[in-house]
């Protein structure tokens, strides 16, 4: 076996891929949030123009493939690792560990990820596929140029109470997932240091609260204010 294959099929190699893909997705979430928040602006033009740029720019289109790759790799490796983990203990304990010294969310990464995956599929159908492939989105004209009115699509969606509740629940689980995922990715990369690890852990907690909260305020504001 070549060094490359043996590295990336080993336990630590697979964990490395998981953590890098995870950190990549963590950065993506920030970019996505930044653009999303524009929909709250009084003038929808900014959001629609940015969405148009994100949907048509060639570099972004290439990066979109990388992004989907990141999601898929994160999921496939998670599945591989999880199956191995289940197989490693064929007979379960009758009474499981009740220790409270470990992080609560760290034990439920695969469970929270299932909720996030279901959300992701519905989310893609709600917006991405509708805008990109189905095309039943109304158009608006800015300076004589036509744009998809995606802001209207978002606003229509979040006037539905059911959609708002579903998004909020999904974001809660995303927060749980990130709470462990953020600092865990650094530990896996071997980044552990007396000076920096407390900072990373703190940033992880802040990130896992603020980012889902930032996403959550969009459906909430649209539902209650518009």
């Amino acid at each position: 076996m070549s060094w490359f294959t043996s590295t990336f099929t080993s336990s630590i190699g697979k964990k490395l891929v998981m953590s890098l893909a995870g950190l990549f997705l963590i950065i993506f979430l920030l970019v996505h949030l930044g653009i999303n928040l524009m929909v709250l602006l009084e003038n929808n033009m900014y959001f629609n123009k940015t969405a148009h740029f994100m949907g048509t720019n060639i570099l972004i289109k290439i990066f979109e493939i990388v992004l989907f790759g990141g999601f898929i790799i994160h999921m496939i490796y998670a599945l591989f690792l999880q199956i191995q983990n289940w197989l490693a203990r064929p007979v379960r304990y009758k009474i499981e560990n009740l220790t409270n010294q470990t992080s609560f969310f760290s034990k439920y990464m695969i469970h929270t990820s299932v909720v996030i995956l279901v959300f992701l599929v519905i989310h893609l159908v709600d917006f991405y596929i509708k805008a990109k492939f189905i095309g039943d989105v109304s158009d608006v004209v800015y300076n004589g140029k036509e744009y998809h009115d995606l802001a209207a699509l978002v606003e229509a969606k979040f006037l539905l109470g059911g959609a708002v509740i579903f998004y909020l629940i999904a974001l809660l689980f995303l927060g749980f997932h990130l709470n462990h995922g953020f600092q865990s990715a650094f530990q896996t990369l071997g980044i552990d240091h007396k000076k920096y690890t407390p900072v990373i852990k703190f940033l992880g907690v802040i990130y896992s609260i603020l980012v889902p909260l930032g996403y959550a305020c969009i459906p909430l504001i649209i539902y209650f204010a518009k």
């Binding site: 043996s6 080993s10 336990s11 697979k14 964990k15 690792l81 191995q84 983990n85 197989l87 490693a88 203990r89 560990n97 220790t99 010294q101 470990t102 992080s103 760290s106 034990k107 990464m109 462990h180 600092q183 865990s184 530990q187 896996t188």
Partner: peptide, 16 residues
């Protein structure tokens, strides 16, 4: 390599 060969699971940094 010996650890993986033996069939142990993979660390998920829970700290247990």
């Amino acid at each position: 390599a010996a650890m993986d060969e033996a069939g142990f699971g993979n660390c998920t940094n829970t700290g247990a």
